[in-house]
Lab assay of single mutants.
Amino acid sequence: MPSETPQAEVGPTGCPHRSGPHSAKGSLEKGSPEDKEAKEPLWIRPDAPSRCTWQLGRPASESPHHHTAPAKSPKILPDILKKIGDTPMVRINKIGKKFGLKCELLAKCEFFNAGGSVKDRISLRMIEDAERDGTLKPGDTIIEPTSGNTGIGLALAAAVRGYRCIIVMPEKMSSEKVDVLRALGAEIVRTPTNARFDSPESHVGVAWRLKNEIPNSHILDQYRNASNPLAHYDTTADEILQQCDGKLDMLVASVGTGGTITGIARKLKEKCPGCRIIGVDPEGSILAEPEELNQTEQTTYEVEGIGYDFIPTVLDRTVVDKWFKSNDEEAFTFARMLIAQEGLLCGGSAGSTVAVAVKAAQELQEGQRCVVILPDSVRNYMTKFLSDRWMLQKGFLKEEDLTEKKPWWWHLRVQELGLSAPLTVLPTITCGHTIEILREKGFDQAPVVDEAGVILGMVTLGNMLSSLLAGKVQPSDQVGKVIYKQFKQIRLTDTLGRLSHILEMDHFALVV
């Protein structure tokens, strides 16, 4: 994948999101292997301009796509893939009243899908469409860049269908997702969380590099694949309309690839034109409109599966009536509230959605109805927002919020430890010299600072030695090549209790 991002070429006709291997024109390309080798690009942008032909009021008969309808489940399912879809609609009884809503608040519980998330729908649909058009064949390999849930859905379907599955996901995604993927037989590649989507090191860039190296491999490409919004247009939206008897006044959905909100909203605009569509985008993402909503100094966020630093091709923002931004604290607070007060075992993005819903639905009156999409299960986040310690460490809970008995030293300040200034190293000294210094002084790690004293990161003896043994660096290389740029900081005025929580999850903390 090139470091400079080429513009994806656009073909003359058809839909841009065809499933299957992508040609340089962004659509299915038939021909000899030699032709494909000559024409197939190194990668295709996940934010390529959409060429979708959908228009409100256009006859369904003019759609270029294969459409399906929700099917009634048999008493005995032939395999677990038949437990994807037909998820329950559940009334939220307490939270709406707590925040003064007059309307009825309903939750579409997508964590009841077989793999635990709304992404099971698009995973199965992308595979079925690729099999139907002859792209996927027995023994082929599926590769997908994902925040985890699409990966789980694909790995689940691949396990049943017999495909090899490789999932490329950023490091910030939970260990629970990784464990589930491994249990399903998927191979996992992790990428830096802070890598831009168009960087060769991003999950998108690495996935395309693997595709170019592995024979008979395919990126189904949830960011561009029409099967993504079509899955929701054909099934999720129809289920909502049936469950609500066609009567709903507002739908609120958090947005990642945009397939969920695009597919549902398009069908609702056709069948229930008075329904307002509300999009939820986390602070630090750029999906919301108008652009002024996205202006923030924050560039990272903890909530998973929603928000991006690019506009995915499948996201149709014209069908969203209003956007709201959400933050991590309210997302996790509301997710825990949904679990504790409503018994809905949902993930953090569901918290984002409901946090926005109780604001947006203030305009609705008694007798009206708001539906929220709860995308995934708490299963993926047992060591994250479900953990009091994690919430404390991230600053989303305060010590006084917890009532468990603490040891005698818990409320003492870090400054009472009488710490001395640490050994520091410059980023320009060599790895070999740094190892000598650390061994001589008896230290395992040291902060790396520039000549102005600005902290650049941390270097550890173990990481340097393993990097040297693996051949990633040489003793003569500058130590700046092996620094940890993500590390926890703590102030002298913070409590030892807070430091204790940090050290339970990290090997060190830097006192500043």
Rank of each mutant, 00 (worst) to 15 (best):
E131Y: 09
A253K: 05
L81Y: 06
E128F: 08
P170Y: 04
G96F: 04
A226T: 09
R125P: 06
G274M: 12
Q222P: 01
G115N: 08
L106T: 10
V204I: 05
G205V: 07
E239A: 00
A60L: 11
L106M: 14
D234G: 08
V90S: 08
G246R: 15
L268V: 08
P74W: 03
H22F: 14
E171W: 01
I188D: 00
H66I: 11
V255T: 09
D79A: 03
G26M: 07
S254H: 08
K172P: 00
L268N: 01
A114F: 03
K83N: 11
A226D: 09
G115K: 08
A253D: 09
Q242A: 04
G14W: 09
S3P: 04
N113I: 02
K25V: 07
K211M: 15
H17C: 04
R190L: 05
K102F: 02
M89Q: 02
I152Y: 01
L241S: 02
D86F: 10
H67Y: 03
N194E: 11
A155H: 01
W208C: 07
L136S: 05
E128Y: 01
E144M: 00
L56C: 11
I143P: 00
G100P: 03
S23T: 06
K137Q: 11
G205H: 07
I214N: 05
Q222M: 03
C275D: 01
I122W: 00
T235K: 10
M250C: 01
K269Y: 02
K119M: 00
A48V: 12
D120L: 07
I44M: 13
R276M: 10
I95D: 00
R58W: 15
D198T: 07
D245C: 14
G26C: 09
E171N: 09
P6A: 08
G85F: 04
A207L: 00
D35T: 07
R58Y: 05
T13C: 04
A69S: 03
D249Y: 04
G116D: 13
E144V: 06
S50Q: 06
G263V: 01
L77V: 12
V178H: 00
P78N: 08
G134T: 08
L81F: 09
I44S: 13
Q55K: 13
H218T: 09
P16F: 04
H65W: 01
N194H: 13
N194V: 06
W208T: 09
L154Y: 02
L248I: 12
S19N: 05
